[in-house]
Design a protein around this nucleic acid. Structure first.
Length: 504
RNA sequence: GGCCCCGUAGCUCAGCGGAUAGAGCGGCAGACUUCGAAUCUGCGUGCGGAGGUUCGACUCCUCCCGGGGCCA
């Protein structure tokens, strides 16, 4: 879903062509402001030479309002140059939409749940969980921006062997004893031992506080201990099969490599049974789309989560599992092992203390979730000073400064007869934003936003350096350009949970 | 042994069928009496390898090599 100013041109060229026309920004200036390969794609459909079709497109383009010039280039590209009036129109669209620019792209809105982090409450959040939180929350923000009704859930595994060990470790510490075999020994265990109350509840409280600090607001905290496993199993009767005395779910129907036991031969439910109760609870609350944000080590869960949805009579496509690659910590170039039990980890709180929230959130979503991530603990602070997030924030603060100095001067999108190259680049960059957002949503890839924000800031800084805004011949137009740029930078940053400062 | 993800510039990464593959960091050389220099300008023999599909492949398919993970 591109900006309307671009979409209008695309529609103007589609008449009778038989394929969709998509405008893209060419790499070289001599290929125009926009270009399309529509003739090349239409050629096999129409069984005609692409150059011929391109020539017809060129003729059609000359009568589309906003197109100043159109040229055909082999093997069948159509290159377009836009008129000053078009730039004014595009800018007016952005200003008119205000903070809503680029939003509402969802064709149908869904009640969507994003389950994120779901860390075990046996210790503080680590930087590994932080990637989950930063990524999952940004996906949630994108979905909200698209128009969906989004709730974030954090699941708490509060029963089982590890939890028992954790409680015993804290109790041992309270008595001044060593933790039990396989127990927990980090500094935080000692800290918890000095506090009153259940260590698990305290830990959940800390996790919640850390996430809030990290600007991840969780709407629902679901405890494993409160799930109704029995009634979930009752609901599955007739959709399972028995073998060797156990009750099974046919997860292989959804790509699992083997079927899974739901109830053991001795009558005890398995983890899958708890997952079933959890899934049921999600659907019972009325969510139409269930998104799970899981680390790469959980990719084996995808099939069984879909199978559970199907077993309860829901479309398995309603379950969407987003897998992100793991965070590897290095220290001075050497890999550093993380173990919560030893307390040998890097906590999210430490990372935030070290580099700040903005740099941390930017850092954790700056590259694709499909890309493994290395974090060098030693270089974290040093690198953070050069974090591009400040480059982008500086552009925002710089604009805020200009607008403060503008006093009562009024912005106006009416373009001058001739635009400077830097002005054209900036408007075209701003016009890209709805498309960038739409693609980020479609691909569940918020990393497109930092990439875009750097380019936008880059275009602005260059424009600023070469042209005056205030007391220029076209001050109203340039103020409008500044206002639109500030608004889009702020939105791009907000979608990844980063603030846009007025001063810095 | 089976399955998933990843190999792009010295480093960290974009690029998801288009034209001469980009950015940040690091390095070198320049630009502040002017709206904020946390800025700007210039400097780059790189897509792991081999086949295939296509008018066109970093992008899609097959195999191989290398790294990470899950299951057995």
């Amino acid at each position: 879903m591109p900006a309307e100013a671009i979409a209008r041109i695309e529609r103007g060229l589609e008449d009778g062509l038989g394929v969709q026309v998509t405008l893209e920004r060419p790499g070289q200036a001599e290929h125009g402001d926009y270009a399309t390969n529509a003739a090349l794609r239409a050629a096999p459909v129409k069984r005609r030479p692409p150059m011929e079709i391109a020539e017809e497109l060129r003729t059609a383009a000359t009568s589309v309002s906003g197109v100043a010039e159109a040229q055909v280039a082999p093997p069948g590209f159509l290159n377009l140059w836009m008129s000053p009036a078009w730039y004014g129109e595009a800018l007016a669209e952005i200003l008119g939409a205000g903070s809503e620019y680029g939003s509402g792209s969802a064709a149908v809105t869904e009640r969507t749940q994003v389950e994120l982090v779901s860390a075990n409450p046996t210790g503080p959040l680590t930087v590994a969980s932080a990637r989950n939180g930063a990524y999952g929350d940004s996906v949630g923000r994108l979905l909200e921006f698209a128009g969906h009704d989004v709730a974030r859930e954090h699941y708490v595994n509060d029963t089982g062997t590890q939890i028992d060990l954790f409680r015993e470790s804290v109790d041992a510490r309270k008595r001044g004893e060593e933790p039990p075999e396989g127990g927990y020994a980090g500094d935080y265990v000692a800290r918890l031992a000095d506090l009153e109350g259940d260590p698990v509840e305290l830990m959940v409280g800390e996790i919640r506080a850390t996430l809030e600090r990290f600007r991840v607001h969780v709407d629902d905290w679901v405890l494993e201990s409160m799930l109704d496993v029995d009634s979930a199993l009752a609901r599955l009767e007739g959709r399972t099969f028995e073998q060797d005395g156990a009750v099974w779910l046919r997860t292989t129907d959804f790509g699992d490599d083997k079927d899974r036991v739901l109830i053991r031969a001795d009558g005890r439910p398995t983890y899958l049974a708890r997952d079933a109760a959890h899934t049921l609870w999600k659907f019972e609350r009325g969510f139409e789309r269930l998104i799970y944000v899981l680390g790469a080590d959980h990719h084996g869960y995808i099939a069984r989560l879909k199978a559970l949805a199907a077993a309860f009579g829901h479309d398995p496509e309603a379950v969407e599992v987003l897998i992100y690659q793991l965070v590897h910590l290095t220290e001075g170039g050497a890999a550093r092992q993380m173990s919560k039990r030893r307390g040998d980890v890097v906590f999210l709180e430490e990372l935030i203390d070290e580099i700040g929230i903005d740099a941390a959130r930017w850092y954790l979503v700056r590259s694709s979730h499909e890309q493994p991530m290395d974090i060098d603990v030693d270089l974290a602070r040093e690198k953070s000073e050069k974090n591009p997030v400040y480059y982008v924030q500086y552009a925002h603060a710089r604009i805020a400064g200009i607008l403060r100095n503008a006093g009562d001067a009024r912005p106006l999108s009416e373009p001058p007869p001739e635009l400077e190259p830097e002005e054209r680049e900036l408007v075209k960059r701003l016009a890209e934003f709805p498309g960038v957002v739409a693609e980020a949503i479609e691909r569940r890839g918020p990393h497109a936003l930092p990439v875009y924000a750097i380019r936008l800031a880059d275009d602005f800084h260059r424009f600023y350096h070469r042209h005056r805004v205030l007391e220029s011949d076209t001050e109203p137009f340039r103020l409008a350009l500044c206002g639109a740029t500030r608004s889009v930078i702020a939105r791009a940053l907000d979608l990844i949970g980063v603030e846009a400062p007025e001063r810095m």
